[in-house]
Amino acid sequence: MKRYKKLLTAVLVIGIILVVFAIVLLLFGLIPSKDIKIATYYILVADFSLPFILLALPLAIGFDIIAWTIGVIIWLFGYGSWPGQALEIVLSAHPVIHHVFYVVFLLLGLFVMVVLPYWIFSAVRKAMNTQKHLDWGSSIVGTITLVMGMHILAHFLSPRGIATSIIEYVVGIPALATGILLPLKYKRIDYNFLAGLIGIVYGILLFATRFNHPSFSIYSIWFIIYAVRGLLQARTYRTTAPSQYSVLMALNFLLLVLGMLGVILPFFTLNSLPLVVAIALMIESVITWLE
């Protein structure tokens, strides 16, 4: 297996780069979506995917990576009009292999979404001389938060422009997940426990009521709470891990600014709120990975 580790890594990296590149081109309308079907792109911009995006996305990511690596080779032999279609043609002709590959798609997608970020940010934390290792709970919650940020960003960039209709989900899911994580991670009653309790209540309220008629500024309150908690937590790394302290202070301060901007912005325009929420969620995910 070690003999093929570099080859597998190269294939995985190439596949991820090609999928990300294709999604960006689709989002900005530079390639016709009717000709090329990127499963990850359609999950990210679909109306029906929430709150089930976290179940469907790993399968879509795995399929796209295989399509743009192995599928390209099949496509070069004249199957289909593009690599994904070529892969589907071959798999459909062999039902048993088809089912096996769907398991491969799922495992590969989960690897990219959970294990890969864990490896990356474990290396980053090691380079920052942090005393604690990244735990799997933080890695998973960081991934969930990043996916929600990418989801609303994809909606914001798509021509349909309906991102405001999914804000309660993309904010509520990370808030609930983080609310569960914080007490389990820090195991003491302090500001982390309080923020976690608020996150759980806040997330449940978003799902239960969906805040049909309030100001949209309610959705940015969570970012302010998480940023204030993060600034307090970052101070504990000042002497033990100065690099971690500096980075986390900067990220939490930026998150606090975005949260305050999200509170003020709806009084003037709703058009930019989804973009603010998307950036805030991505920053929140990085904070979760680095703490």
Score class of each variant (00 low, 15 high):
residue 4 Y to A: 12
residue 5 K to T: 15
residue 8 L to T: 09
residue 10 A to E: 08
residue 11 V to I: 14
residue 14 I to L: 13
residue 14 I to A: 08
residue 17 I to D: 07
residue 19 V to E: 08
residue 19 V to P: 01
residue 22 A to T: 03
residue 23 I to C: 05
residue 23 I to K: 03
residue 23 I to T: 08
residue 24 V to F: 10
residue 24 V to W: 11
residue 35 D to E: 10
residue 38 I to S: 04
residue 41 Y to F: 09
residue 42 Y to M: 12
residue 43 I to W: 01
residue 45 V to E: 02
residue 49 S to W: 05
residue 49 S to L: 10
residue 50 L to I: 11
residue 54 L to H: 11
residue 58 P to T: 02
residue 64 D to H: 02
residue 65 I to P: 00
residue 66 I to L: 11
residue 67 A to T: 12
residue 75 W to S: 02
residue 76 L to Y: 12
residue 78 G to F: 07
residue 80 G to V: 06
residue 83 P to T: 07
residue 87 L to C: 10
residue 89 I to Q: 10
residue 92 S to H: 14
residue 93 A to W: 10
residue 94 H to G: 04
residue 94 H to K: 14
residue 100 V to Y: 15
residue 104 V to S: 14
residue 110 L to C: 08
residue 111 F to P: 12
residue 113 M to E: 10
residue 122 S to E: 06
residue 123 A to L: 14
residue 126 K to R: 15
residue 128 M to L: 14
residue 129 N to D: 13
residue 129 N to F: 12
residue 129 N to H: 13
residue 130 T to D: 06
residue 133 H to V: 06
residue 133 H to K: 14
residue 137 G to S: 06
residue 138 S to V: 07
residue 138 S to P: 09
residue 140 I to Y: 07
residue 144 I to R: 02
residue 144 I to N: 00
residue 146 L to N: 03
residue 147 V to Q: 05
residue 153 L to Y: 07
residue 153 L to T: 04
residue 154 A to E: 03
residue 162 I to R: 14
residue 165 S to F: 05
residue 170 V to Y: 07
residue 170 V to G: 00
residue 175 A to D: 00
residue 178 T to P: 03
residue 180 I to W: 00
residue 182 L to E: 00
residue 187 K to Q: 14
residue 190 D to M: 13
residue 191 Y to E: 14
residue 192 N to I: 00
residue 196 G to L: 03
residue 198 I to A: 07
residue 200 I to V: 09
residue 222 W to E: 02
residue 224 I to N: 04
residue 231 L to H: 11
residue 232 L to P: 02
residue 234 A to Q: 12
residue 236 T to G: 06
residue 240 T to S: 14
residue 241 A to M: 08
residue 242 P to N: 05
residue 242 P to Y: 12
residue 243 S to F: 08
residue 247 V to G: 02
residue 253 F to T: 15
residue 256 L to M: 13
residue 256 L to T: 04
residue 259 G to V: 05
residue 265 L to N: 09
residue 269 T to D: 15
residue 272 S to A: 10
residue 272 S to V: 14
residue 275 L to A: 09
residue 278 A to R: 01
residue 278 A to H: 10
residue 279 I to T: 11
residue 280 A to T: 05
residue 282 M to I: 09
residue 285 S to F: 09
residue 287 I to K: 07
residue 291 E to G: 09
